[in-house]
Simulated scan of single mutants.
Amino acid sequence: MKILLATVYHYPHTGGLSTHVATLKAGLQARGHEVDVLSFSDVPELTQNMKVRGPGFLMNKLSKGKGFVFGLKTRKKMLQKLMEAVKHKNYDIVNAQEVYATFAALDANMPVVSTVHGYLTYEALSAGNILKDSPEEKFLMEEEVKAYRSTREIITVDTRIKDYVKREAGVEGTAIRNFINIDTFRPEKEKKKDFRQKHGIEADVPVFFVPRRLTKKNGVIYPILALPAVLEKYPNAKLIYAGTGEAMDEMKRLIAEHKLQASVNLLGAIPHEVIKEYYALADVVLVPSVHSAGVEEATSISALEAMGSGSPLIACAVGGLKEIVNHEVDGILTEEKNVEELSAAMIDLLDHPEKGEVLAERARRKIEEEYSHLAAAEKYEEIYQRAVKR
């Protein structure tokens, strides 16, 4: 098949959606399909600034949320033009990665199935992009329903999102949990010392790694709040974040307030290849997700990558994390926002590194058996074929 993966966001980029697209592409290609990706990155940078970012910024100044909606609609128009320019390639199917990519494919008169990674309206509320009970909230929910009812097939990345689509739009989707490239993300603990030397981290420093977009629903403030208790027993411990987002200012404030500047490192956005190295050099990976404005974690790609990379995982018991982590078997689950419980789990894995090794070994086996990109690509292929026949 000739398949086009499409998104109104940037690709490649830091974040779960971009990782999903790259991993799905690899799996489909391994199965012999021809796969292209079309994204907002294919729009010239000057055009992005002049027609999306600049006007959207000004509109948000006048009325919170209007610029955000304007940006989505404008991205859709740009993606549609890009699709129309490649229609001569005669793609069998377009796999849209969100609501407005779905609209772009529909208006370009191309066959489309849609992957739903989350809750567009609720996530916009959680991130503060729109206001509660605003016209923008009502509009985005209507757009979600319209997209879900118009596409040929719906794929969701976990069962909660499948239930959400059914509840809001009356459409039955197919849940295919997120997955990782098991060949790319594999244990490399033998390179731990080399990676630490490369990134300027001493060999004996306990390292906690948080590979998360810095947004409220990802609970990124809680490892900072849990760190002081850890430092009482392990004063040289380091907390390292990889990601950017609107929570950065609050995190910096908390770091300064608790005098943690020497113990917390905010790397910002780093390439996926480098993130792999931090998984290998870390002693523990943290995925501290929380409920926020009706949004909860799906099948976290960050958690799957950690489990595939040989690092023990501590995650909060919310959303899809409860599905993929078996507490005290292949990872540790803590109550969301419970700072004391989180710090106790962090200390426990430093106190008992052999426990972490056992958890990591079991996690890797689970990833190989249940979350392979090759097995997921086969499931996607079946849905594409079903959609083509409609």
Results as ranks from 00 to 15, higher is better:
Asn326Asp: 13
Ser289Met: 02
Ile255Leu: 02
Val157Phe: 02
Thr174Asn: 08
Gly320Leu: 03
Glu382Val: 05
Lys238Gln: 13
Pro135His: 07
Lys146His: 10
Ala22Ile: 08
Lys233Pro: 00
Gly27Gln: 11
Ala345Lys: 14
Thr102Leu: 08
Leu281His: 05
Lys216Gly: 12
His258Lys: 15
Asn90Glu: 14
Ser18Gln: 10
Lys146Leu: 15
Ile383Ser: 04
Ala26Phe: 02
Ile3Pro: 03
Leu28Ile: 05
Arg390Ala: 12
Tyr278Thr: 13
Thr115Lys: 03
Lys379Cys: 01
Ala108Tyr: 00
Gln197Ile: 12
Ile332His: 07
Tyr241Gln: 05
Asn109Asp: 15
Gly32Trp: 09
Pro312Ile: 09
Asp249Cys: 04
Ala315Pro: 11
Leu82Trp: 00
Met346Pro: 03
Gly67Met: 08
Ala229Tyr: 12
Asp348Gln: 10
Ala247Glu: 15
Ala345Thr: 02
Gly331Trp: 11
Glu136Thr: 00
Val329Trp: 05
Asn109Gly: 07
Pro312Arg: 10
Gly71Asp: 12
Val116Asn: 07
His291Arg: 14
Glu153Asn: 15
Ala375Thr: 12
Ala375Trp: 08
Lys138Arg: 14
Lys276Gly: 06
Val264Gln: 01
Ser311Cys: 15
Glu136Met: 09
Ser126Tyr: 04
Thr151Val: 15
Tyr122Gln: 14
Phe209Lys: 00
Pro55Ala: 03
Tyr91Leu: 07
Ser39Pro: 05
His33Tyr: 12
Phe57Thr: 14
Glu246Ser: 05
